[in-house]
Simulated scan of single mutants.
Amino acid sequence: MPTVNLGGSGLRSLDESLREQRAVDELYLHENQLTELPDWLGELTELRVLDLSHQPLKAIPDLSRLQRLEFLYVSDLAITELPSTLGNLSSLQYLGATDNGLTSVPESLGRLSKLIELRLYGNRLTELPTTYGDLAGLRELHLDRNAIQRLPQTFDQLTELRVLSLRANALVDFPTQLSRLPNLRHLDLRANHLTQLPDLPPDAFPALEKLDLRWLNLPTTPPWIHSLHHRGCATYRTKT
């Protein structure tokens, strides 16, 4: 299918002729000077990949009609919110919305049943909606460099999750609900506000291969950490 690559072209607006290319499959508009997008962008219903990243874009138009869209890149923009209509993108597998000014994210994203990877690092989030526990197919969740204080208890439903990165947030309580996830392999909790680890059963984190606890003030090590080490999980801690 046709690919249109207009990335890095210095565009300040989109030519109306693009509207007629209804068969376009991949559209790259990254690294331009676009501050707004026309509503007709949502008419390109064959789109499977859409890259809008790295430009002073102030808002994302309604893309609800893009029912074939699988990859959406909306990083490093001038936006402060994501539209709730993104929850209607029923085929979406990847959403990258990093390095924006987001203080919250819409509950509707919890409806993205085919989402495999979600990247929200480098924003101003303090919490996530409980509906994100409904992302049954999610395998990677990247939340570094936010101000998240706690995770929803519903995260124990993310049974396909492999990678969870929470480096440089504001967690004060260890997210024990993660310990029951059967496929979690990498957990990064570096540079949070944790001062103690909970008591967990020795079979906690059954599939974990890497646990990063560096730059935390943790004076004691509970037995389950030793169990992880003996099972072959690489555990990283700052020496005290």
Results as ranks from 00 to 15, higher is better:
122 G>Y: 03
141 L>H: 08
71 F>T: 02
196 Q>P: 00
35 T>W: 06
108 S>F: 02
143 L>W: 00
186 H>W: 08
178 L>S: 15
67 Q>K: 15
94 Y>K: 13
133 G>N: 05
182 P>C: 13
229 H>C: 06
99 D>P: 00
46 E>G: 04
81 E>D: 09
80 T>S: 12
8 G>N: 02
236 Y>H: 14
80 T>P: 00
118 L>V: 03
93 Q>T: 00
216 L>W: 07
85 T>P: 03
171 L>C: 11
211 L>G: 10
194 L>D: 11
123 N>V: 10
164 L>D: 07
138 L>W: 11
231 R>F: 01
197 L>H: 12
197 L>W: 04
227 S>K: 12
54 H>F: 15
158 L>T: 13
146 N>Y: 13
187 L>N: 07
91 S>H: 05
118 L>F: 01
20 E>H: 01
233 C>I: 05
118 L>M: 12
25 D>I: 00
166 L>K: 13
7 G>R: 04
45 T>L: 05
6 L>S: 11
193 H>R: 15
61 P>L: 12
175 P>M: 08
160 E>D: 09
239 K>S: 11
100 N>A: 11
177 Q>I: 08
19 R>A: 15
182 P>S: 10
21 Q>P: 01
76 D>M: 09
75 S>W: 00
29 L>H: 06
167 R>F: 02
200 L>E: 11
137 G>R: 14
157 Q>G: 03
56 P>H: 14
35 T>N: 10
